[in-house]
Design a protein around this nucleic acid. Structure first.
Lengths: 242, 242
DNA sequence: ACAATAGTGTCTATGAGACAATATGGT
DNA sequence: ACCATATTGTCTCATAGACACTATTGT
């Protein structure tokens, strides 16, 4: 941090009155709905001077220096405002900043990504779920939000290969085949049943509840996440198919 | 991004005259020197109103909206200013922003981490290398730079378990035992020779040059990195010792 | 009994860990 | 010849992939 940059900008030390970039936080919110990975988007407002009027965009907005203690709190606030969800999986994705990404001037956004359970959320009117088909979103997004979303999808897919992240997309109780289905939806390929079960069960991340899911076939054991909300890291990835 | 946040802050649409956080970029620069992992630090200036006067800090400073096209360019500029290095391995680490981290006000920094070859750098006067012993730095740093550095060390160590990142710390030509030594320095544990060689050689990331390194023992084959500057990802980590 | 899905077992392949054996230079 | 380090080989172990087999419910 500076002093030096200050001198560069103004030739005067001890002052902070040089131009500051706009600072925003955006949140990529994922959930599983209708057996598909979906992302929550909002529509940009149409007012005077608004960039990308009526375009779809990630939920987010300017950091409020009065309200937000830090970046993570700002992201959590935006998530809660749109979905009502309070304590999800929330991870920092990265930041995007440039002179060109916002027509209003040099701006930098801090992007987060959240995994929530769709059923547990209560959306505001302006927010809607959009399915991600074949690892991409059909719709064009405002700003560089398409890039940010693509990066979030890549990060999610990559981590799903060697972590228990999909557990955070599940309802409170679920079966192993349910969980495998979610892994397969995110990865967009099928996984081998017995290897999957071995991996998950030996990870000590879930515990059986004294109930079974019944259907027109053999009942399945229901599980729930163990307390520790941390994701589990496996020492190998699922090997991609040849 | 906003409109909404604008309304929150001012109750007036189409305006951008609400308080903006300070925006900085900081760079964690690693190199191997004297068989140790070292990090480049600078001393804070002592002028009037300067926070943390004379403390050690990561190289960095305010984003210059006139000079810097984007965040990565800003990070590359700061790296070049301090070390003269132009095209290193440069990766975004994350961002840290809060009301409290800088006494001058709400600020957010975009942190990058760079891997360079120490011998190829020409330091400015104010920058010095500091060894990282046992995964920690002895010195206290200004702002939250201690946290940022700890995060960088953790990310580096973690990635070294399953990527070829240490290759970017090597000189143009090096032997396999050299490379293994660097892996071991970063991980702070010894690796098994034959497994290491198998992994590296089958990754198709280096190629032999028609030279050997000679010493008072059997000569060692010299290698260089293949063109593609991308790091290689392995499907397994080195298994940590039991 | 049959369909459908849950759950287990068996066999193979890959790559890491341990460690021994061999190779090749300088002295 | 001897030392030191480079390089290769052998054997074991853990876990993924393929795939078959068994288990348990509803109809």
């Amino acid at each position: 941090m500076a002093g030096e940059a200050r001198a560069e900008a103004l030739g005067k030390a001890g002052q902070l009155d040089f131009p500051r970039p706009l600072t925003t936080v955006d949140v990529v919110i994922f959930a599983i709905r209708d057996d598909r990975l979906q992302v929550l988007l909002v529509q940009r407002p149409a007012g005077e001077g608004e960039p990308f009027p009526l375009s779809l965009a990630l939920p987010g907005g300017f950091v409020d220096v009065a309200k937000d203690r830090d970046l993570a709190a700002c992201a959590a606030r935006k998530l809660k405002e749109k979905t009502g969800v309070i304590s999800p999986y929330l991870e920092q994705l990265g930041s995007w900043g440039s002179a060109a990404r916002d027509p209003r001037g040099w701006s930098a956004t801090h992007a987060y990504f959240a995994l929530i359970q769709a059923d547990a959320s209560a959306l505001t009117n302006d927010a809607r779920w959009f399915p991600i088909g074949g690892g991409r979103l059909k719709e064009k997004l405002a700003f560089d939000h398409g890039d940010i979303l693509a990066s979030a999808i890549q990060r999610l897919r990559n981590k799903v290969e060697y972590t228990s992240l999909p557990a955070f997309l599940m309802p409170a109780e679920f079966t192993l085949p349910d969980l495998q289905r979610v892994y397969e939806i995110v990865l967009d390929r099928s996984l081998e049943k017995s290897a999957f079960r071995t991996r998950i069960l030996s990870a000590d991340m879930i515990e059986p509840v004294a109930k079974m899911r019944r259907g027109p076939n053999r009942p399945a054991q229901l599980y729930r996440l163990k307390k520790g909300r941390e994701p589990v890291y496996f020492v190998r990835t699922f090997n991609p198919p040849v």
